[in-house]
Computed example of a mutant assay.
Amino acid sequence: MVVHNPNNWHWVDKNCINWARQYFEEHVVGVKSSAGGSKYVEVASVSSMEGDCEVSQRKGKVISLFDLKLVMMTKGKVDDEEFEGSITVPEVAFDSEKEDYQFEISIYKETGKLNEARPLIRDQLLPQLRDIFSQFGPALLQTHANDIQVPQSQVKSEYTRANLTQSKASESASSDTPKPTSAASTKSSTTGADSKSAPSSLSKAPLYNTTALHLEPTFNVPAIELYQTFLDKQRIQAWSKSPLVCKSTKNVLEVNDEFTIFGGNVTSKLIECSPDKRLVFGWRLNEWRQGHWSRLTMEFHESKEYHETKLQVTWTGVPVGEEDKVKGNFMDYYVRSIKLTFGFGAVL
Rank of each mutant, 00 (worst) to 15 (best):
S172T: 14
K241T: 02
S240F: 01
D194Y: 12
L140A: 04
S134P: 00
P178N: 09
P222C: 02
S200A: 10
N251K: 15
S175W: 06
S170R: 13
V255T: 13
A169G: 08
L207S: 04
S174P: 03
S188H: 05
E158Q: 13
E254R: 14
T260G: 05
T186P: 07
T186R: 09
L202G: 05
I148Q: 00
A145V: 04
S175F: 06
D176G: 11
Q142D: 13
N209I: 00
A238N: 08
N163D: 06
T177Q: 15
Q228C: 10
S189E: 04
L231I: 02
I236T: 01
Q234W: 04
T165A: 15
V150W: 01
I224L: 08
L213Q: 08
G137Y: 11
F259K: 10
Y227I: 02
S167I: 06
P206C: 08
A184S: 14
T229M: 08
T190H: 11
S157N: 04
A223R: 03
I236M: 09
S153K: 12
S248C: 03
V155K: 06
P180Q: 06
S203Q: 15
R235G: 01
K241R: 07
A139S: 13
N220T: 11
T260N: 08
V252A: 09
H214I: 09
D176K: 15
S248R: 03
P199Y: 13
K241V: 03
P151F: 03
